[in-house]
Design a protein around this nucleic acid. Structure first.
Length: 553
DNA sequence: GCCGTTTTCGGCCCGACTGTTTTCAGTCG
């Protein structure tokens, strides 16, 4: 077991303890131990051998014994025992707002509840309200929370759709009778939330293909002569659209949509005749090709020429990267070497500021240590450049959560809101405007704070924010985390018109989350952005010079 | 469960908010 497996096991222990224990500090101790293990630049197995494990902060005798057992046997008896006390799906209940581990523990202890169905039945019967710490309002919240969760069940974040489409295409590649297959629909248009996956298949033997589909999808259902619907393993609806190879282009165009775009295409003289590719259809009609991401409406059909939209390979570097110094799951060393291995010319490390206590925000003392740690790793990852930054909280009054002396030390500052989300729109706007006036702010982080499919963003006057950001030269982040995708692509054009610059960031909390640059690029493409409109497509020297000049000015 | 130039017990990361209380606990960021 490596350090990440061990940390996960310790986190699991912590969760179970919080369900069952009165002493929440025991749970907290395991959580800290997990964080401590992740922050190691060594493997626990080696530390056991040298007897150094118990010297690790947050690891005492009891935890060390569990870690030794995990390393030796791959499991922990203690964790195993905790698991047997609860139904396997109990943590699913965390999806319901206002339900945390404490309340879930009570629900299980008093009513034996271990899943959503049981919870719903109990709440309907009025058995939840009388429980200690609950009440009629909480019971009502739970019911509406379950309803919302159910409604979202048929909605998925874009990467789920993209991955499902890719997996199915891989299966399709093995079917002889298929000449071509492409994902279409909202997934191809890279819409941030999708309900189904559409796939166009070019074949002359539809029946043979349908028979072969059953190997990797379930519940195949015939819709019409050219369409079947099925169920992917991860419960997404998948629509298969069949076309003769010579009509593949038209079917791809129609099923990619949107209906509004297709109608506008026809209006401008486009025809859905014989064509193997979409390109042929655009060419025949004398219309410049429109990328799928730009087909929410017909606006781009008026363009004389096709614009080359940004691609993830255009990004030479990135900002907004967290480490174990705050709430990241990988160390400075791991984040930096991964960035180097991905071929970046530069990377900007930005951990949280003190006000983000829950995320382990860095005190000025800890910042010094972090900068030391970065310096210690800089040579190894050279010539990649490392910029020292922060994701600093915008406090409720609009000030930034470090004093000027500290802010001066950063190469860049991402200012973000992490508290008091429910502020009235006017106050929230003033708060952000004030932050934008701070001369040390380089980027505005996740503008609305939304979490797709779970939480709306805070309300804010976009127009005034864009205006100010444009005037002040503060760039707005296109946060590529698939849960956020914030700034919303629908707002980007307007922001650009008001002079706002953009950077695509992964908001990475682990080495794997650099991948969020891909989803961030999707957002930029949907807004029609080209490489030159994104800050982090610029070469390292230019970026360094800009950041330096901005700090001086 | 961990930790200690406040050291072997008693505290442990903050603060707003909400619904539950009748002085506070749980959730959320």
């Amino acid at each position: 077991m490596n350090k990440f497996d061990i940390a996960r096991a310790l986190d699991d222990i912590s969760s179970y303890l919080e369900l069952s224990e009165n002493n929440r500090f025991r749970a907290l101790a395991f959580e800290r131990a997990a964080h401590s293990i992740r922050a190691l630049d060594a493997e626990p197995a080696d530390l056991i051998a040298s007897g150094e494990l118990v010297k690790t902060p947050g690891i005492g005798k009891a935890t060390a014994a569990i870690i030794e057992e995990l390393v030796r046997t791959g499991e922990s008896k203690y964790l195993g025992e905790l698991r047997t006390q609860y139904p396997s799906g109990i943590f699913e209940l965390l999806r319901i707002p206002k339900l945390g581990l404490k309340k879930i523990g009570i629900l299980h202890e008093k009513l034996g509840i271990g899943n959503l169905d049981e919870l719903e039945a109990a709440a309907r019967d009025g058995r939840v309200a009388p429980l200690p710490g609950f009440g009629p309002k909480t019971q009502q919240y739970i019911l509406s929370g379950i309803e919302k969760a159910r409604r979202r069940e048929s909605h998925f974040l874009l990467p789920v759709g993209v991955d499902t489409g890719e997996q199915i295409r891989e299966h399709l590649a093995a079917i002889e009778e298929i000449e071509d297959a492409e994902v279409s629909g909202s997934v191809r248009r890279r819409l941030e939330i999708i309900r189904n996956v559409n796939i166009v298949i070019a074949t002359r033997d539809q029946d043979a293909v349908v028979r072969a589909l059953s190997k990797f999808v379930e519940k195949i259902e015939r819709i019409d002569d050219d369409t079947v619907k099925a169920f992917a393993r991860n419960e997404i609806d998948v629509w298969f659209h069949f076309a003769k190879p010579e009509a593949f282009g038209a079917t791809l165009l129609v099923t990619t949509g949107t209906p509004e775009f297709v109608a506008a295409f026809l209006e401008r003289g486009g025809k859905l005749g014989r064509a193997r590719t979409e390109k042929e259809l655009f060419d025949k009609a004398g219309i410049a090709y429109v990328d799928p991401e730009r087909r929410e409406n017909g606006d781009d059909l008026k363009r004389k020429r096709h614009r080359r939209l940004i691609e993830v390979s255009d990004l030479r570097g990135t900002f907004h990267v967290h480490t174990t110094f705050s709430d990241g799951r990988n160390t400075v060393h791991e984040m930096l070497t991964t960035a180097r291995d991905r071929g970046f010319e530069y990377v900007g490390i930005s951990d949280h500021s003190p006000a983000a206590f829950y995320a382990g925000g860095l005190s000025v003392e800890q910042l010094k240590l972090q900068h030391k740690e970065i310096a210690a790793n800089e040579r190894e990852v050279a010539p990649m450049r490392v910029f020292r930054g922060t994701e600093a909280d915008i406090l409720p009054d609009g000030t930034i959560d470090y004093d000027e002396k500290t802010l001066k030390k950063f190469d860049f500052v991402i200012a973000s809101i992490h508290s008091r989300f429910q502020m009235p729109k006017d106050e929230m706007t003033e708060r952000m405007l004030r932050a934008l006036d701070n001369p040390y702010v380089t980027f505005l982080g996740h503008l609305t704070g939304r979490k797709l499919l779970s939480r709306d963003g805070y309300s804010v006057d976009f127009e005034r924010i864009f205006e100010k950001a444009g005037q002040r030269g503060v760039m707005i982040e296109i946060n590529g985390n698939p849960n956020r995708l914030d700034l919303d692509w629908r707002h980007i054009r307007r922001a650009m018109d008001l002079g706002v610059g953009f950077a695509i960031t992964p908001d990475a909390h682990s080495i794997h989350e650099y991948a969020a640059l891909i989803s961030g690029t999707w957002v930029a493409r949907k807004a029609g952005l080209t490489p030159k409109e994104i800050f982090n497509t610029k070469p390292a020297d230019e970026v360094a010079a800009y950041l330096k000049a901005r700090r001086a000015g």
